[in-house]
């Protein structure tokens, strides 16, 4: 039995050299950014990092495990509020608050996963949409804790008595993005990532391999909510005023778009997708009257020409070098 080798090409991802070069260049550029950009530019870049964290987690859930979530804005919000409340009202140190908030949100994510055991595709999407609305409503109504529709104003964050300025928060976000990238990369190439891929392919096949689909859906939701909540904890102190309206369904759809545009089931694509979603509209501001129109059309063009997402393009370019 010989394989027709001309049609059967081995699977290739980015070569190690090209990948390392790309990552090194991005990291160098990211470290230099605060010294080059003005305040607003730095804010946009920090926001990109925050959204990239959410997209990384969502990509593990949607790209790997095949579960659609329309409540990631709510996870993001729970993380933001938990971090803000812990620091401002309970005096817990900032980093510890982010971690505690993220663990709490991971537990919330595991609860949201319960209907995911029975539902799939659009039905799951609608169920998570409902969860998102409920969580947002809880934040709104729990006035004693969240100040409801009045929102929460936050004083600048501090770590070990040192007040974080805009570049401090930027570097903190960068550190979390690097950590998040590393963790997501490891999971995607480890036992859990492989289990998620087979759960997406077929729950029956997963069962036959000794992989309980239900448990791995819960794990995927929990990890994904953890990532979103870390992003939320950073976001709260980036904008320094949070309001329940920040965390509506529209933002959930934006997160999903970042993942799809970057490339489902790709780690690097999550970062590229978030960057596209945050930075392109900023660059389009110069075009008078029609930035929304141009951005919308760009989304359509990217999806039509690159169904694999932007990361597919990066991969193709990387292979040539």
């Amino acid at each position: 039995m010989t394989v027709a080798t001309d049609i059967a090409r081995p699977r290739r991802s980015l070569s190690f050299g090209a990948g390392a070069l790309l990552l090194g260049l991005c990291f160098a550029a990211a470290c230099a950014a605060p010294f080059v950009l003005n305040g607003y530019g730095l804010y946009v870049l920090t926001l990109t990092g925050v959204f990239a964290l959410v997209a990384l987690g969502l990509n593990l859930l949607t790209g790997y495990a095949g579960q659609i979530s329309l409540c990631h804005a709510a996870f993001f919000g729970v993380g933001a509020y938990a971090t803000a409340i812990l620091t401002q009202k309970a005096g817990v140190p900032y980093l510890l608050s982010i971690l505690a908030g993220a663990l709490f949100t991971a537990a919330v994510g595991a609860i949201v996963a319960v209907p995911a055991m029975r539902l799939r595709s659009l039905y799951l999407a609608i169920a998570t949409l409902g969860f998102g609305v409920v969580l947002q409503k809880i934040i709104f109504e729990w006035r004693s804790l969240t100040n409801g529709g009045g929102g929460l104003a936050l004083s600048p964050p501090a770590i070990a008595g040192y007040e974080l300025g805009a570049s401090g928060l930027y570097f903190l976000t960068l550190a979390f993005v690097m950590l998040g990238l590393w963790g997501a990369w490891n999971v995607s190439r480890g036992r859990t990532g492989r289990a998620l891929l087979i759960v997406k392919e077929s729950e029956i096949a997963a069962g036959a391999l000794g992989i309980p689909a239900a448990r791995f859906k819960v794990i995927a939701f929990a990890i994904s909510a953890f990532y979103a909540a870390v992003g939320g904890g950073l976001f709260a102190y980036l904008v320094r005023y949070i309001h329940p309206e920040n965390f509506s369904v529209g933002l959930s759809i934006a997160f999903l778009s970042m993942v799809v545009i970057g490339g489902l089931g790709t780690i690097g694509g999550s970062i590229v997708g978030a960057a596209f979603y945050v930075i392109i509209p900023e660059l389009l501001r110069g075009i008078k009257d029609a930035p929304g129109l141009v951005f919308g059309l760009l989304l359509v063009i990217v999806m039509v020409l690159m169904p694999q997402g932007l990361w597919g393009l990066v991969r193709r370019l990387g292979r040539r070098t």
């Binding site: 081995p10 699977r11 999971v187 036992r191 859990t192 492989r194 891929l197 391999l209 000794g210 992989i211």
Partner: peptide, 28 residues
């Protein structure tokens, strides 16, 4: 029912799930 975008080797690695004893934190 295989994961079509993965290689033969990667698909077989999926089946090693139970013999890989490490936990999620070690994996991360």
């Amino acid at each position: 029912e295989l994961v079509v975008e993965l290689s033969v080797r990667e698909n077989l690695m999926i089946a090693c799930h139970r013999s890989l004893g490490y936990g999620l934190i070690s994996e991360l």
